[in-house]
Design a protein around this nucleic acid. Structure first.
Lengths: 107, 107
DNA sequence: GAATGCAATCGTTAATCGACGATAGGCTAT
DNA sequence: ATAGCCTATCGTCGATTAACGATTGCATTC
């Protein structure tokens, strides 16, 4: 029942292997950075990375925000490809996260 | 006259050596990420990193934006500590950039 | 089938952002 | 001094964001 290995199933849509430079990469880095460009979303990512939270209600408990607001932040993170969700809850999307790190690293 | 070594003089205000975790670090990462969370600002950073541009007018030439808009983007980057300016023009602030990379790396 | 609990979505509001033109400040060269 | 450039700032406008409460949708449990 431990969701450790199965929390987030095989990538249905792995972050496209586009170049690390050029207008497209700039656009992508812009989107990824914008997604984490809010303290609440940074906190959410950290909670997920420390596995201190998995489901939305746990995150709500940790933040001074309404449930609908947290849900919206999760939506933004998911849409950006930094988080993924399954029936077991939320977890980091290491593809998106890795892509972000790679894009930033070469600046 | 080459501005390579003197482009950006000694740090007047080196990015404070705060922790990489905790609410303060989250806040800081949020601010840094927000600053690069726009395609135009990403492009500016890349131009500066490749030394393809140094002064505002050169950047304006490279982007489909008005001078005032570019100036504003530069202000945002400078305020975030990702860029610094001197009489020689703009250049990357490696302190801020390094801090950003460090903060992202541990997520 | 009804009730409960959790999460997503809707609708609204205030605040912030992005972009621009116009203007002002500061140099440099005439 | 003035004329010309370059950049920062101001004022404005529309678009986007952040936050909330209310509502809906979906399971699970009674």
């Amino acid at each position: 029942m431990d969701c450790e290995p199965t929390c987030c199933p095989p990538e249905p849509d792995p972050e496209p292997l586009t170049a690390l430079e050029g207008p497209e990469a700039d656009e992508q880095l812009g989107r990824l950075a914008k997604a984490i460009g809010h303290p609440a979303r940074v906190r959410i990512l950290r909670l997920l990375s420390r596995k201190e939270a998995r489901v939305c209600s746990q995150i709500v408990d940790e933040l001074p925000l309404a449930q609908s607001t947290v849900s919206e932040h999760l939506r933004i993170l998911k849409e950006a490809g930094l988080v993924r969700s399954s029936e077991a809850g939320y977890c980091l999307n290491f593809d998106g996260l890795g892509r972000l790190k790679a894009l930033i690293a070469i600046i």
